[in-house]
């Protein structure tokens, strides 16, 4: 991967690494680990990480738990509404291999086939320490300009798109009841 950055980008990446706003997509039980991470015990805010209300404002999409075909569609929609540079954190083993529901017809087993995942947090579920550790790793990656998932998504959009359609199917009628 091309790792050369201009000075401006270096400054920008430094800023981005120290101010991470996350949108947590609470698809599963993983979200329960976030409150302790944010509150007094572990205090995520000291790294400049905080929750944000909408994908427009957020930098990180936190996919907390297993995905079904129904939720994946919305994850992708939310991800596309976010503004670059944007990062996805797959949270818990469900996003890696489908977790305990891996054999269900509706479960998505691998998140990174559909959207570029910058960081996986393994565990069922990961403890707050693991989350903080993971975020530290993500910050380092951003700082060094290595968290380039959003660029991958743009570059390999055709491939991602194909995977998405394979999993979700084409939607022909566009209204509130069919998508």
């Amino acid at each position: 991967m091309n790792n050369e950055q201009t000075a401006w980008e270096r400054v920008a990446n430094m800023l981005r690494a120290r101010s991470l706003w996350m949108l947590y997509y609470c698809t599963g039980c993983g979200a329960i680990e976030l409150p302790p991470t944010m509150t007094a015990r572990f205090d995520m805010e000291r790294f400049g990480i905080g929750p944000m209300a909408t994908p427009r404002q957020a930098d990180i999409l936190l996919v907390t738990g297993y995905l079904s075909t129904k939720t994946l569609r919305r994850v992708i929609y939310s991800y596309e509404q976010m503004q670059a540079p944007k990062y996805i954190v797959g949270f818990g083993s469900c996003t890696i291999n489908g977790g305990i529901y891996y054999d269900s017809y509706a479960t998505i087993n691998r998140l990174d086939l559909y959207v570029p995942v910058d960081l996986y947090l393994a565990g069922c579920m990961p403890r707050p320490e693991a989350i903080v550790n993971g975020f530290k790793n993500l910050m380092d990656k951003i700082d060094q300009g290595e968290a380039t998932g959003w660029k991958d998504y743009e570059a390999n959009y055709e491939w991602y798109r194909k995977n998405q359609i394979d999993a979700l199917g084409e939607v022909y009628i566009h209204d509130e009841f069919h998508e």
């Binding site: 800023l15 981005r16 101010s19 805010e45 000291r46 790294f47 400049g48 930098d59 503004q83 540079p85």
Partner: peptide, 19 residues
Amino acid sequence: RCGPPFWQNFIDIFKSLTK
């Protein structure tokens, strides 16, 4: 809690401007 550094808001603002 510990809280962010006091210059955190500068970082937030300037980061937003780069996005």
